[in-house]
Amino acid sequence: MPTSGLIITLQPGSATQADAVGRLRARPELTLGEVSDRWLPVALETRDDAESREVYDWLMALPGVAFVDVVSVNFEPTLSLQLHPSP
């Protein structure tokens, strides 16, 4: 299960922000931190990469979200499937 750390930049306007945060909170894959200024730190945990992409696209299209930045990815859980054989 890939786990990523994201920063969501929210559009200005308290009503828009509150609505966007509410919809984000409803997604079980997301763990939300504290909104600070216009930025919301988020942890994203998904089944696989396809779901990560799906959620990312959903975030980018969500009203009230101006931008999504990724700051970390832990691929340790999936790496064992991709490693070259040990020498």
Binding site: G5, I7, T31, G33, P41, A43, L44, V71, S72
Partner: peptide, 15 residues
């Protein structure tokens, strides 16, 4: 733990 680490990394950049 991984989820908490990811959130901490994102929160640190926001801070």
């Amino acid at each position: 733990f991984l989820r908490a680490s990811a959130l901490a990394a994102a929160s640190a950049v926001v801070a």
